[in-house]
Design a binder for these strands. Structure first.
Lengths: 181, 181
DNA sequence: TGAAAAGTAAAATGATCGTTTTACATGCGG
DNA sequence: CCGCATGTAAAACGATCATTTTACTTTTCA
């Protein structure tokens, strides 16, 4: 009995490394190590495989990053980048390369970005002892920037993002004196 | 006499709006409003057209953003996003969708990211009265993050990035007391 | 004015790609 | 041990796509 999850996991890896539109079915079939007949029987087709790969990535990513603080979040992201490499946000790439023709992909991406925003809000709340939507929005930009700057600057971009986040956090702690009272 | 620049400008717009791999030659030909024969005579082929579109974007982008300060930079970026929309970095998308098979595209992208880093260093130096490579690296992450978060959060992501940059700048001004100094 | 240059429309070409089908092998439960 | 689930290998199919070519018209300018 062939493992559907293994097919999907290999697709997730290849799509991330080589891109969505650049990767044909024959490449995904070869990577899965099964016949085309079997792969189509298990995932339906290209659209189903991509959607399943997005779901697999969602699970794997949220299992890998920590949500118990902003510093911890960026440290775990740096580790992710070092082991997985950086090719830009898997979900935004899916949206741009395959999401135009497939609304269910667009919906997956939207859900991922919403979940990510929630993760960051939780980290900020943990560190600050209160919610801070504006700071969370800024740190979301840092996370998104780290993900994409890491494509050409590697893990050091994630480190820079983590340091920036620490500075913003410090300012938010000591700094209602800066604006508005 | 048909304007080569007009062909390229229309390609830049369509590729940005609809993506590289999702956009076929017939779409680019229709957008240019010329015959396929004429377009091929002017730009050589798909690879030449994409490369020319990248060059056009480089020129247009650096003409649109200000380099006389970090706040000015993010304000002009917000205006860009409001008039042009946000689809992620045009260059990183080109790299992911067309750069694997074309080294000259990869080189263009590298040059763009280098120029962007220089732009940010200049803004930081102007505001700070001195160079600060670490701060510039953090603001680069903010710029990259603004570009990509704007895909799903619009111009407000750029505003958040600008505010974060201002906080980092303030900390860098008042803050050698924070570490090491 | 007349010929070369430059343009259009549309068919043809050849390659690639997602998907299906054909023909056959294997292993497992009743 | 029969029969069906499940698998492989590979050909076939139809669609799409980049590019070229054919046939013809318009523009330009010496």
């Amino acid at each position: 009995m062939i493992d559907r999850d293994a097919i999907i996991a290999s697709a997730e890896a290849v799509l991330d490394r080589e891109g969505f539109s650049a990767t044909g079915m024959d490449r995904l079939i070869k990577a899965a190590g099964v016949s085309s007949r079997t792969l189509y029987k298990h995932v339906g087709g290209r659209a189903g495989l991509i959607l399943a790969a997005l779901e697999a990535r969602e699970e794997r990513f949220f299992a890998a990053v920590r949500s118990d603080g902003v510093e911890e979040l960026f440290r775990s992201l740096a580790e992710w980048v070092e082991t997985e490499g950086a090719h830009g946000c898997f979900f935004l790439r899916a949206l741009g390369e395959a999401g135009a023709s497939d609304p269910s992909i667009a919906e997956r991406v939207r859900a991922h970005k919403e979940a990510t925003a929630g993760l960051i809000e939780a980290c900020v709340a943990k560190d600050l002892g209160r919610e801070d939507a504006l700071l969370a929005a800024q740190i979301l930009v840092l996370l998104e920037g780290a993900t994409h700057a890491a494509v050409y600057r590697g893990a050091s971009a994630v480190e820079a993002a983590g340091e920036a986040a620490a500075t913003l956090l410090e300012a938010a702690r000591g700094g209602p004196e800066r604006a508005g009272g």
